[in-house]
Amino acid sequence: MKRKELSSIEREALLMALLSQLLREEISSGQVLRQLRRDVLGMSQTQYAELVGISRRTLSDLEADKASPTLALLNQVFHPLGLQTGLVPRNRHLRERLLSVEAPSA
């Protein structure tokens, strides 16, 4: 069965929902990577690993949260998804406040 391709609005909504869950520690970065790889790009682990220049085993370990990746590796695997690693407060309350702040209008 062929996967329905997401519209740009649906992709952005999925990305925002996943990032919000990640910041709330409801899901892991590996889970985010797996869902975006599959649902946004529609790629297998082998295809995505080739795209980002890593082994399929490394990608599998990242998605299963079995790896201790460097920041460079995280940036490498999240780059095709339009993401990069960054700093967020360790304190859960501060992260929640960060999430509740509205972005300024352009």
Rank of each mutant, 00 (worst) to 15 (best):
G30L: 01
S55P: 00
L62R: 08
G42K: 01
T46P: 05
L59V: 05
Q47C: 08
V52L: 04
D65H: 09
A67H: 13
R56D: 08
D39L: 07
K66Y: 12
Q47T: 09
R34V: 04
Q31V: 02
R38C: 08
A64G: 12
A49S: 08
Q47E: 15
S68W: 10
S55T: 15
G53T: 03
E50T: 13
Q45T: 03
R57V: 14
G53Y: 05
L51V: 00
L36N: 00
R38E: 12
L51S: 08
Q35I: 10
R57S: 15
Q47N: 12
R34T: 10
L51D: 07
R38V: 10
E50G: 13
E63L: 00
Y48S: 04
Q31D: 06
K66I: 07
G30Q: 00
A67M: 09
M43H: 06
T58Q: 15
E50S: 15
R34Y: 08
L59F: 11
K66R: 15
T46K: 10
V52I: 03
R34W: 09
K66L: 14
L41D: 05
G30Y: 03
V32T: 05
G53M: 03
M43A: 09
L59P: 07
A64T: 10
L51W: 11
G53Q: 02
S68M: 13
A67I: 08
M43R: 10
I54L: 13
A49N: 07
Q31I: 04
G53R: 04
R38W: 08
R57F: 14
G42C: 05
G53D: 06
G53I: 12
S29G: 12
P69D: 01
R57Y: 13
Q47R: 14
L41Y: 05
G30H: 02
L51F: 11
Q45G: 03
Y48M: 11
T46V: 13
S60I: 07
L41K: 09
L41P: 01
G42I: 00
M43P: 06
A49C: 11
Q35V: 12
